[in-house]
Design a protein around this nucleic acid. Structure first.
Lengths: 176, 176
DNA sequence: AGCTAAATGTTTAGGTCTAAACGTGAGGAT
DNA sequence: ATCCTCACGTTTAGACCTAAACATTTAGCT
């Protein structure tokens, strides 16, 4: 019984092996979350890395794509405040500020002061054009990546994920 | 019909709404991956953010925890090469090198040259003690976060995720 | 022996994020 | 009127990553 795996093999350590290793090394370790959390993180990383590679060819980074996407999806006149952007993208207001600064210097968005100390971020024609030619490529690629799922298992998985997301969101939202 | 959501509401934009918005704005956009990929990313981010907060109290960062965990799980004598670490953690060799440098200056691991130009990373007693007192807290917290799942739905979800992970890994592994 | 190709770890440049400190407006209380 | 507190966006420090260039060793070939 060997302990080595081929180094180039995909997903060399299934979650079950990780849990087993903890039990062997530290009997009683609470490992029951591993079979959910580990594949979840690995999938998210694979999708993120793949998206970064797709976008590299288009000269746009994932954070900027996310920003422009939210503005584009909001519909005309394609503008939202910093705070609304933060809420829709799950990053902090500070991160949005930095994203906007980058996108602004690439002429993809503009900043406009608004009442109540808010700042409106608006998509420029250049930004609009960029998102139009990027979004289909990204989504088509991701659609291909999950094409192994049957319609039934896809619907099942989507429901399960959304349900867990609601629950975890609720549990983590009132954090210190 | 208003378009505003309460900004402090959890998960303000379900994946289904995002897909709907794209269809409204750009009919024909290939949105079928969104219901899977979006909740996946959001869950991964919630777990990552939560883990970071748990670890902040213990004075350890997530990347270092990951490094020490892999070494600890490997069993005595708690040493692996850089390349093995990279394979087990899904980050690049460069990232491992940086993690090791950080952990080394905190006296948590040591570097030892090994045959074949390899470098063995070994857990120090300090590193061993740190991982022992961290791992249970992290895993217990994550177990609580998924406690809403029934045993059946948990098993179902774990299987579905692992299966999708195998598939996506295979599709993305021979990338340029 | 000498050369070349592959493998391994490190460094560097650049992007990205969070948390916390900060500056500043706006509204309410007195 | 004045103060106080909250809300909002920005800035900064520090963590973290990838991709690519780099340096060095090993192994195979001639």
């Amino acid at each position: 019984m060997t302990d080595t795996y081929p180094l180039d093999s995909p997903s060399p350590y299934p979650a079950a092996d990780i849990a087993r290793a903890w039990q062997r090394e530290r009997p009683g370790t609470p490992t029951d979350s591993i079979e959910i959390v580990t594949p979840l993180w690995r999938l998210a990383k694979l999708f993120a890395d793949d998206r970064r590679r797709v976008l590299a060819d288009l000269n746009i980074d994932p954070a900027t794509l996310d920003l422009l996407s939210v503005l584009r999806r909001a519909g005309a006149p394609y503008q939202l405040t910093t705070r609304e952007l933060a809420a829709r993208t799950l990053v902090t207001a500070g991160a949005i500020s930095q994203r906007v600064t980058r996108a602004e210097s690439a002429n993809l968005v503009t900043r406009t002061p608004a009442p109540h100390r808010a700042v409106l971020i608006t998509l420029t024609p250049t930004g609009h054009a960029l998102i139009e030619r990027s979004v289909d490529q990204v989504l088509t690629r991701e659609s291909a990546l999950i094409s192994s799922l049957t319609p039934e298992s896809r619907a099942h998985l989507a429901t399960a994920l959304q349900s867990l997301l609601n629950d975890v969101t609720h549990q983590t939202s009132n954090q210190p």
